[in-house]
Simulated scan of single mutants.
Amino acid sequence: MISGNKGEWSEIYTLLKLLSDGKLTPGDENINKLKGIFYPIVKILRTESNGSFEYSIHDDIVIISSDKEELLRIPMEEFKIRSLYLFEKIKENKQNTFAVPEIESFMSEIKCISLKADSKTKSDIQIVIHDLRTNQQPTLGFSIKSQIGNPSTLLNPGKPTNFIFKVTGLNYTEDIKYINSIFIKKGEKISRDIKGRINEILKRNGKLEFVKIENQIFGNNLALIDSLLPNILSEIVFDFYASKRSKLIELVEHAQENNPLNFDLSNNHKFYSYKIKKLLTDIALGMTPTKVWTGEYHATGGYLIVKNDGEIVCYHIYNKNEFENYLLNTTKLDTASTSRYEFGDLYIEKDTLYFKLNLQIRFIK
């Protein structure tokens, strides 16, 4: 029996829903469908451990094997019925993982034997569309993000995403011991109080100065996108931990107001939002902290968003402005495990005092 979480079942829902709709609809920056714009779907490509298959859209859904043999035809209406049923099951389920036997039976019938396609690319689904503007039929890869389950991450946390700050102005003995003893309790969980520790550092006339990103590859990836991006991002990360701001758009607007990098804003150039949008787009389309980024986008050309009401909107580099604005408007910074990723403590290294802050970017539900 196949079992998965809401996000994993949302991938199957997306397959069934798109085959029943027969089109992709772009979204605006607020995840609303753009009126009057759509891309007709020619077929959806899926690779399973038992072979590769095409789900071609005609009057029926025609399933074709890798050697171009027609395996079966199923009315589009059947996919609509199954997608609606699966959506309700995903919405109502309270368990971390669950099975949907009725859908599993239908999946087997249409040669879909797993929740995730067996793909070597970063895309969750590959779709051939008919581009009405160019009269071409490109194959587009998408990552699927579901709003039905828990918010997914855009940039996963890890030690490589730690930002290192040099701390000056503190008493090495008394101040360090006291500040490192500041914890916060949330329910049964006790963790480092990062905001409390930063406030205490500043209260004791300490200063934090960004030095570098812990992982050299991640630091260079950011510098490749924009040479000042490590510094800009360090200001935003610090602001997140030191204030009540968490939405990325609010943090970027605050950076624009304060202009910590002293850009020439006399003509109202949006330096901060422009550079952060470039970062978000590159992360969304392939950049990871520990692999050298070349700037080449992989098969994933955008996102499909499964909304809470079951509708699906797409964002693609075809619609660059909408894609960038969507990423900026729907993400926030979040605090990862301080113990697991080893940040939030004052520590001495070669007679210099340091403090690490971690970067995690998550979608807002």
Rank of each mutant, 00 (worst) to 15 (best):
residue 32 N to P: 08
residue 261 L to Y: 06
residue 288 T to I: 10
residue 16 L to C: 09
residue 302 G to V: 03
residue 91 K to H: 06
residue 87 F to N: 06
residue 217 I to A: 10
residue 109 E to N: 14
residue 14 T to S: 10
residue 126 Q to G: 12
residue 104 E to H: 14
residue 253 E to A: 15
residue 290 T to C: 00
residue 226 D to K: 11
residue 122 K to E: 13
residue 139 T to S: 12
residue 335 T to A: 04
residue 24 L to N: 00
residue 203 K to L: 11
residue 65 S to P: 14
residue 230 P to F: 09
residue 195 K to A: 03
residue 46 R to H: 12
residue 283 I to F: 05
residue 253 E to W: 10
residue 178 Y to E: 07
residue 7 G to L: 11
residue 109 E to D: 12
residue 283 I to H: 05
residue 73 R to C: 05
residue 107 M to W: 14
residue 30 N to H: 15
residue 118 D to E: 13
residue 246 S to G: 00
residue 41 I to C: 07
residue 269 H to T: 15
residue 264 D to T: 06
residue 292 V to G: 02
residue 195 K to Y: 03
residue 234 S to E: 04
residue 1 M to W: 03
residue 167 V to T: 12
residue 215 N to E: 10
residue 295 G to D: 12
residue 178 Y to Q: 01
residue 249 I to T: 07
residue 143 S to A: 13
residue 65 S to K: 14
residue 284 A to V: 08
residue 285 L to M: 12
residue 227 S to I: 07
residue 122 K to N: 14
residue 236 I to C: 04
residue 337 S to A: 00
residue 248 L to I: 00
residue 90 I to Q: 10
residue 270 K to N: 13
residue 68 K to F: 11
residue 343 F to C: 00
residue 242 A to I: 05
residue 363 F to E: 01
residue 78 E to F: 06
residue 143 S to F: 11
residue 13 Y to E: 06
residue 79 F to I: 13
residue 150 N to V: 10
residue 83 S to M: 09
residue 210 F to S: 12
residue 154 L to H: 01
residue 233 L to Q: 01
residue 150 N to G: 07
residue 341 Y to A: 01
residue 110 I to E: 06
residue 162 N to W: 11
residue 175 D to F: 12
residue 101 P to G: 11
residue 347 Y to I: 02
residue 181 S to W: 05
residue 213 I to C: 07
residue 121 T to H: 06
residue 268 N to G: 06
residue 301 G to C: 02
residue 74 I to N: 02
residue 314 C to Y: 03
residue 129 I to N: 00
residue 95 Q to L: 14
residue 82 R to V: 13
residue 183 F to E: 15
residue 245 R to W: 01
